[in-house]
Design a protein around this nucleic acid. Sequence first.
DNA 1: ACCTGAACACCGTTCAAGT
DNA 2: ACCTGAACACCGTTCAAGT
Lengths: 210, 210
Amino acid sequence: MPRPSQPLLSMERIRECALEIIDTAGLEALSMRRLAERLGVRAASLYNYVPNKDELLHDLANSMMDQVDVSGFGSDWVTGVTVWARSYHRALAEHPNLVPFIASGPARREAALRRADAVHGGLVEAGWSQRYATMIGASVKYLVVGSAMGSFAGGFVDDAEIYDERFPNLSRAHLLRSHAAEIDHASFELALHAFIEGLRRRYTETDSAE
Amino acid sequence: MPRPSQPLLSMERIRECALEIIDTAGLEALSMRRLAERLGVRAASLYNYVPNKDELLHDLANSMMDQVDVSGFGSDWVTGVTVWARSYHRALAEHPNLVPFIASGPARREAALRRADAVHGGLVEAGWSQRYATMIGASVKYLVVGSAMGSFAGGFVDDAEIYDERFPNLSRAHLLRSHAAEIDHASFELALHAFIEGLRRRYTETDSAE
DNA sequence: ACCTGAACACCGTTCAAGT
DNA sequence: ACCTGAACACCGTTCAAGT
């Protein structure tokens, strides 16, 4: 019998299947053995394509972050920050179960640093000091990561009846899962715009970009 | 030989030791077997005191969150939010390795809901609508959780020399670990104050608390 | 080149058994 | 009441062996 000329696995297939497990069953549900089983193969085979589990996760994280758009700094810093924050937020929201992995640990990767550099550069060019550029970048990151992690969606159990009398201020409508996604999005937008508004009012934009 | 009348274990000792492992070696370093070993006991013994590992972690999380101070809403909403955010931030910063656990998953616990209720109530009493009270509460939580997770400290490798030429905008001083803690704190304060400032400017406080 | 079985050193958790 | 040994069903990873 000749060996089948087509390999059973591919990086593509591995990534896809891993992400599917994470999205549907959670980060802790991903194991090399389960992943292999779904791919119709034994766990050891995966190591022909991936150095280890951690590297696979970093790989997924990186391709997620490729959607982050930093091009808005070509215009003024406000649209730069807004475009950056929104695309960042959208990228994380697409695979919420991967967010804890992305957010913990150093973002030591090439692409991440290139984006950080672009954000910092855009802010400095708009007249912010080095120090403020760093802090503004950090603040927006806090907002994005925080909203991806501590989102309302999934934060409360489904039947809000339980809470009704015990916690009078937490009214039903604000706890229902069906409204949670909308509230999450509105809260993020509020936080982002209020933050930017606060920045504009409080500090002089010494030489603002046109 | 009589059985030793004093038990070897106690909830106190278990919690203390678990937290020490998490703080010094990280969340993933905590295993029931390693914890037992440090306590001079076998893993199975722990189950006389703790239903399972997850419950132990929730227990640690809860006692951390007891430090969150919601009393500031006795005065105006600005100090209410500020006191809340700072104490929340401080609590998380004390055990950063536990933050991913705290931030993921529903905060379904009694004490957490009581605090959420207090925040919401305080904001509504200050004249914010139900909807805005919810969004403001969420926004601040985003900031606190985000700053605890995506903190600069530990976010970059120690020798910043590597970055110097490759990423011209990310200057050395902003990447050094020694400065990271200070930048983190300053960024959090900037974000919080700019957010509050933005809120005050943009929306009428219809009937502000005296 | 790619896949496998077997092995190693780990997990969380249960449970009958000991004192 | 509290601790233990042994077991069960899992992990990630390596490696000699097969094709």
